[in-house]
Structures are given as C-alpha cells and as structure tokens.
Nucleic acid binder design. Structure first.
Lengths: 188, 188
DNA sequence: GTCTATAGGAAGATAGAC
DNA sequence: GTCTATCTTCCTATAGAC
C-alpha cells in the first residue's frame, strides 16, 4: 500500500549511497547532509545518535537489499543455474555494475566497527551460508560447498576492489560470468 | 652499508602500518604520532606536506615491499611452481598472514585518492603484469594468462576483505594454497 | 520536520624555543 | 630533530525559532 517513500526512507537510501562511496570515516555530516538534501539538524531528527545511527540504518538497509537481490533468488523457483544467474543479476544491480562498493569492505576499515559492530561479519556469513546451500544442492560435498561459497564471496569482494582500483567494471563483470561455475562446478 | 634505519625510515614503516590498519581518513595525525612515537611537529619535519606526504611515503614503501616479496621472486631461479610458492610466502609475510590490509583497497576509499593519485591502480597493474607473465610462461595463451592474473589479484584482495570481516585468517591461507593452481593451471 | 546559529572539541598545520 | 604552544578549519552535536 504505501507507495510513497517516507522522507526517512529516502534519506536512508542516500546515506547508504554516501557511505558506500566515501567509507565511514570520510562520510562527514556535511557530505551526508548534501547527499540527502537535509540539514544537519534534520538528520539528527531522524537519527538521534548522529552518524552512528546513520551507519546502523545504512547497514540494515544494505542487508535488506542483499537479501532481496542476492540471497532470496537462490531459494526461488527454477533450475539451480537459473537461480544463480538471477543472483548474478541481483549482484550487478546492488553493486551498480561494480561501481558501488560493499559495506563488508568499507565497514571493516577505520572507526566503522564501533558504529556497526558485527555487521560486516553478519553480512559475509549470510552470503557464505546461502552460497554453500546452493553448492550443496548442486551435489557438492558439504566441505567443498563451503569452499566454493568462500571463493564466491572472496571473488565478489575482490572484484569490487580491483574494479575500483583500475577504474573499469570489466573485472566485476567477468567475475559475475564465472559465478555459476564457481558455485555449482562444471565446465572449468 | 648503513645497517641502522634512519629515524625517517622507521617512521615510514610505522606510518604505513597505521594507514594499513586504519585507512587513510581514520589515520589522524594524532594516531600517526602515536604510531611513530614522534610528535606532530617531528612528523612535519620529515613530511612537510603533512598527511599527504605521509600517505605518499607509505604508498611508495608498500610498492617497494610488494616488489621485493611478491613480484621479484617470480622472475628468479627455480621451477615455475617453486617461484609461485615463494610469492605466496612473500604475500603471507607482507599481509601478515592476512591480518594486514592492502593499500589497493584502503587507498581507493574516501579522500585517499587525492593524496596518492594513481597509486592503487599502479600497484594493481604491476601485480597483474607480473602474474600474467608467469601464467604465460606456464604455457597459457596470452588471453587466458591475463584472466588468470586478474583472478589471482581478485582473490588476494577479496581474501583480505573476507579475512577482516570474519576475523579469521583461514580464508587468506586457503587462497594462498590455491594460488599456484589459479596462476599456472593444472589440478583443479 | 526543517531551518539558522552556535557550542565544544578534534582535525590538520605552523611558529618558534631548545 | 624534537618539543610545547597555538592557529584555523572542520567536525560532531545541540539549542531553539519557525
């Protein structure tokens, strides 16, 4: 029913984008204010504990989006390969084709951990669990499934770093292309 | 043969450690002062342009260490596999078994790029070139060699992120174990 | 719910004594 | 070469008008 995003929800989206662009420490209230179009005091109205609350809200929103775009497609209908391909599409969307960074990376740097304790670990573990599940479903022994899931998460995070460093989204795109093989096995 | 490190060289090592622990933006002059044991004014004596110069010096030192520990072993003596294993040892040392982060990651976040423009890209490209070289030497076609090199750099960067997020060095260690296969091919 | 104004402190940077 | 003291700017955060 409520089709119209509340101002707070819009603000959270913009805040998440800013944290994912700048990292926790460089995302000053001035930048967050500019990103949202709200004055600092308006931000404190929505987020009484300031930057810390904003980081928590951004982290929670990122978790929601990852669940929707990346994890839930894995337990939907369709063949295993089709589901993993849906996940690849979801990853491309969530990471803006490789141009947006991951909070598992950014929120394990600098002072972010005190604002969002355990968030990055929880996000990483959720991905590992979901990926290991499909790998097992594909017939991989439990241990191999875990190894494949770990490699998939490593490749996602690594591809985002390399893409950022080189200024080209191709490494991220190539990683997505091999994701089904990494998770399910098959043609090397 | 100056065996004794100059105070400046010691300072650069400590500064590099601090940047690799905190990232560029969270590494305040206060923290850099504590890390080096030097007062702020002493830091400005060695680095007249302040934090920017410190980041440049830390970046240059990191490049030196990567050349020594990771890249040079690849063109040394011994079998291909032995050389890649030397590189794996070098990676483990440089990244402190996975506990130290990579500036290719940290210096592409926040305000670091204005201090060390192009550094992360240059580091990533140096690794890509060196890795593609050994993959070619192992008989991989040029295109495959490039793909393998890219995957190796992605896995290194990604393993460091995952290791940081989970608080366990095992992902990094497992990545090192499969590095020879990633680069040279062979037993899947 | 949004703003202006401002407090209070930490940031980067400098001056000058020793 | 290292220090203490200080400057300015930016930061986080709050107060209070509308």
């Amino acid at each position: 029913m409520p089709q119209i995003k509340s101002s707070r929800e819009e603000a959270v989206e913009a805040i998440m984008r800013e944290f994912r662009n700048s990292g926790y420490d460089a995302a000053s209230l001035a930048r967050l204010s500019a990103a949202t179009g709200l004055g600092k005091s308006s931000l404190y109205h929505y987020f009484p504990n300031g930057k810390e609350d904003m980081a928590k809200a951004a982290g929670a929103r990122a978790v929601e989006l990852v669940m929707e775009a990346v994890i839930e497609p894995l337990s939907g209908a369709g063949s295993l390969k089709a589901r993993v391909q849906k996940t690849a599409v979801g990853l491309s969307k969530f990471y803006n084709g490789g141009k947006a960074s991951c909070l598992v990376d950014l929120f394990t740097i600098g002072d972010a951990e005190t604002a969002t304790p355990g968030l990055a670990k929880a996000m990483a573990e959720a991905l590992l669990r979901a990926f290991a599940g499909v790998a097992e479903e594909a017939g991989q022994p439990k241990k191999d499934a875990k190894a494949r899931a770990e490699r998939a998460v490593i490749e996602i995070e690594g591809a985002l770093v390399v893409t950022r460093a080189l200024g080209s989204t191709h490494p991220f795109q190539r990683m997505l292309a091999r994701l089904p093989t990494v998770l399910l096995g098959g043609k090397a």
